[in-house]
């Protein structure tokens, strides 16, 4: 090997490392992508919020594109995304279903009564079992599920307007075609 080139090896390695570190600055180490994206959504049946006589069955959703939003009354970030969900509901673009995660009906209902209800139906997941099947690790999380029941997208953390416009709306347009 050329003698002078050999002494450049450390420098080259260093600059490769810098490249990765720079990229790393713009990645979020706390965001764990879900292995469930591209796979069939786990089916579940759960009592409906404030109306335990009714049961929500995710299998009934086949044939339509729907949004599953996992939220809870005790979750601060959920309040943050609440107005975005309300706007979505108003636009009528998509049916949003809620999954009330590890919560009591009473407290959840109180939040909805105060701030409005963007959901078509809300299933309850009192012991967090459904959450585990969906790989939920921090509420709020939102899943887009297509007509065949496959999860197409997962949003970890609150849906911001930016996420709504850049990711969710284009994806819905494509799926609803």
């Amino acid at each position: 090997m050329n003698r002078t080139l050999k002494f450049l090896i450390p420098l080259v390695l260093f600059f490769i490392a810098v490249g990765f570190l720079f990229k790393g600055l713009y990645l979020d180490p706390h965001e764990v992508p879900s292995p469930l994206v591209g796979k069939p959504a786990p089916t579940f049946q759960a009592p409906v919020l404030s109306d335990a006589s009714k049961t929500f069955n995710s299998a009934d959703m086949k044939g339509q594109v729907w949004l599953l939003n996992v939220w809870a009354s005790w979750c601060g970030a959920c309040r943050e995304e609440h107005p975005v969900l309300m706007a979505m509901a108003k636009s009528g673009q998509i049916a949003t279903y809620g999954l009330d995660y590890k919560d009591t009906d009473q407290e959840a209902q109180a939040v909805l009564d105060a701030n409005g209800n963007p959901y078509k139906t809300i299933a309850t997941d009192v012991n967090g079992k459904i959450g585990i099947d969906y790989g939920v690790y921090g509420v709020p999380e939102t899943y887009i599920i297509d007509k065949t029941g496959v999860i197409r997208y997962k949003q970890i953390g609150p849906i911001t307007e930016e996420v709504l416009i850049n990711k969710i709306v284009p994806m819905l347009k494509e799926l609803q075609r």
Partner: peptide, 21 residues
């Protein structure tokens, strides 16, 4: 800090590549 690393470490390694042979 990354810029600083580039200046300090990168500079040192350039000097190394220049002088060490």
């Amino acid at each position: 800090i990354l810029m600083y690393l580039v200046v300090v470490i990168g500079g040192a390694l350039i000097l190394f590549a220049w002088r060490a042979p």
